[in-house]
Amino acid sequence: MAAVTLEAAHSRAELLHQPRSNKLGLWIFMASETFLFSALISARFITSGVQKPEDLNQALAFGLTCVLLVSSISAYLAEAFIATGHRRAFLAATRVTIVFGLIFIGGVMFEWREALHNFPPGTIYGTAFFSLIGLHAFHVLTGVLGLAVVLNLGALGHFGPSNSWPVEGVVKYWHFVDLMWVIIYPALYLF
């Protein structure tokens, strides 16, 4: 009897702690990641000041920014839909997010082919450009993988209004990647 109560108590305690822990843990992780990005962003300004080459593909970069913005809102919608129990809409929004994420990665690859020619990584701007965009694109890629996992599990019927933490977590991460782009975009293209 006592043992049963104890087990129950333990699982109840877990039920209470885990949502907070997950959320806090993700925030701490994102804070940590911010430092990683800040290291590279500061490296960009330390090595090459506010200099930037003339032959940056501004139109493409602006387009990529818009793509990320759209994917951000679709991710937001995915979270909103699953939290209110609209599973089909959630799946659709997640798919849209993944597609836009992939478009973004494709755009980066296209941009790199040009950039490799114009300002190769051996130049000082190229160094900052390729490392920062590369780091960011890597995060987009992991975000897409996370979304894919969530989509798959969602399609298997895993999430609902009371059980949406994985979706929320991945979407938060996705927004975080967007957040970094908000800084990287002006840092690389506009300043």
């Binding site: 490296a43 990584p121 051996g122 160094t127 390729f130």
Partner: peptide, 8 residues
């Protein structure tokens, strides 16, 4: 590995 120039 990638020929960047951080410390060059």
């Amino acid at each position: 590995i990638a020929g960047t120039a951080f410390f060059d």
